[in-house]
Design a protein around this nucleic acid. Structure first.
Lengths: 166, 166
DNA sequence: CCACTTTTACCCACAATTCCCCACTTCTTG
DNA sequence: CAAGAAGTGGGGAATTGTGGGTAAAAGTGG
């Protein structure tokens, strides 16, 4: 059983990572890679929340307990700052609950599918406390753009990155 | 040849060094040179994390505890700066956990294999806290190019190198 | 309240991938 | 040269990914 390496549980902290190509079938279903399923079952009783990622045209998928933390944070945002208000509206407004079915799949709401342009081939990325779900082409385009800019000295690098040693 | 020459363990610091030609079999598996295996077993319980090296078309292979340090650094990057966000997404997104099998091999994710163009012959380099894995031809080309430019006064040398004594 | 359409959930089946094990070759070491 | 260790390859079982049929549930309009 090689699953334990793909996530990590330190007390209440969960860290997802990793990359998968997945297909979305004609009914709009998406299979969560099996190596994450045990943790999702234990930690969230198969309850997930999916919403849009307001920064990129992709989706975020949280285990329910993690989403509840996000909701608390959103609640503290001011209604009088437009950016904050919109973020709150979008993330909460589009959040929908879903459960893993007996095959470990979730049904993506039509609205979110079209927001992220998820049709056939998609990509799912572990991103710490959540997953990010991209249209495959969109993801590849972002990746290539980033790879270029990393190697390109003419693109200014923020200070936080300049001092980053990997 | 004793193993101890190829790594060093000072407290929590691990330093890998050394060069190996290795082959990648038709199933995409790669055997970690045996002289590193003891340390990996002790220090990381055979848990490794492999991800892409954005600066060259090669891969980075970390023992899990070392990768966790990287993840902590990444977590501090802002989501609202695009460069930083992408770096975080890419490094975490492509990071895949792997375990050494009973022969001391790991299975390279297809995506990463194609990114680094790893087909048959590869090269693995000890690089301090991690290993770097290259397509053999790509490595030799880089090496030759670098050897040329170092001796060439027309290529500017950054200040940090000018003061470097070897 | 009922009939009709659309959506969702459950089940099974096939295909692809991954994992576990064993065998053979090559290289080191005594 | 023998014996062991390390590198390499591959068979086959088990797991996982994917698609679709069909029944239940929900939404819609009269």
């Amino acid at each position: 059983m090689g699953k334990s390496g793909f996530y990590q549980q330190n007390g209440d902290d969960i860290v997802f990572r990793g990359f998968n190509k997945i297909s979305i079938d004609s009914k709009g279903r998406l299979a969560v890679p099996s190596r994450y399923r045990d943790l999702i079952a234990v930690q969230a009783e198969n309850n997930l929340v999916i919403t849009l990622n307001p920064l990129d045209r992709s989706l975020w998928l949280y285990p329910l307990p993690e989403w509840e933390l996000i909701e608390d944070k959103l609640a503290t945002l001011s209604d009088f700052d437009k950016q904050s208000r919109r973020t709150k509206q979008m993330m909460r407004g589009y959040a929908s609950d879903c459960q893993l079915d007996s095959q470990g799949r979730i049904l993506l709401p039509k609205e979110l599918r079209s927001y992220a342009e998820l049709n056939k081939q998609a990509v799912i990325l572990g991103q710490g406390n959540k997953f990010e779900i991209w249209n495959e082409q969109a993801w590849e385009a972002q990746r290539d753009e980033w790879l270029q800019s990393v190697g390109d000295d003419s693109v200014p690098t923020p200070e936080s990155l300049q001092t980053l040693s990997l």
